[in-house]
Design a protein around this nucleic acid. Sequence first.
DNA 1: CGGTTGGTAAACCAATCGGTTTATAAGCCA
DNA 2: TGGCTTATAAACCGATTGGTTTACCAACCG
Lengths: 111, 111
Amino acid sequence: MTTADPISGLFAALADPTRRAIVARLAQGEATVNELAAPFPISMQAISKHLNVLEKAGLIVRTRDAQWRRCRIEPAPLRDLASWVAQYRVLWEQRYDTLGTYLDDLQKEKP
Amino acid sequence: MTTADPISGLFAALADPTRRAIVARLAQGEATVNELAAPFPISMQAISKHLNVLEKAGLIVRTRDAQWRRCRIEPAPLRDLASWVAQYRVLWEQRYDTLGTYLDDLQKEKP
DNA sequence: CGGTTGGTAAACCAATCGGTTTATAAGCCA
DNA sequence: TGGCTTATAAACCGATTGGTTTACCAACCG
């Protein structure tokens, strides 16, 4: 994933379960890198790389606090994600028996 | 991405702009593989591989129709994605000046 | 039947990913 | 000052990704 487009980076960042767990943890409030790493069976260095990915996706910000880096969540990309998926809401809200093939029917009318 | 967990596969599938474009196209109605491939500067084989990824993520189904494969979108995973992101809605709906640090404040009360 | 159309599968390749280990830096404390 | 704690960076590694080319298969059509 080294596409320039932000939404791809966002999806890619969230495609990893460790990173989603970090996001879930940060939704409860700020944390240091050590605190974030504690639940996982991998090295802090690996966590640090995950944080780089999340930061590039705009999902977190890291600030210095003495020898610690405090991480907090940045909600804007999640809002963007919600609005991306919202464009498809009509697809799953259709009543199956009445509108299930509405769009396909529309399409078949054209030719 | 060869994680077993479905939401990772879903995010990974949507992390590619070509695949998101295919999803957007299929939201308008069914299409054959050739029709899906037409707008892209890559081979039909590459599109076929993208369709494999989308199918494994549950986002599309392919059905045989004589010598064609018709593809249609499967909305359920998109609904799942919407409900995943909805859990964070509170984060971006907070009024900045009144609730901006509500969760952090909560957290600081504990110790 | 044989050719053409539509599509998948397999082998291959360079680039990226997720992890490791090692090295380095920044800030506290004795 | 020197050592400890916290964290990042860099080098490396095997697996995965996104594309290619080549090969194959299934169904229509003449």
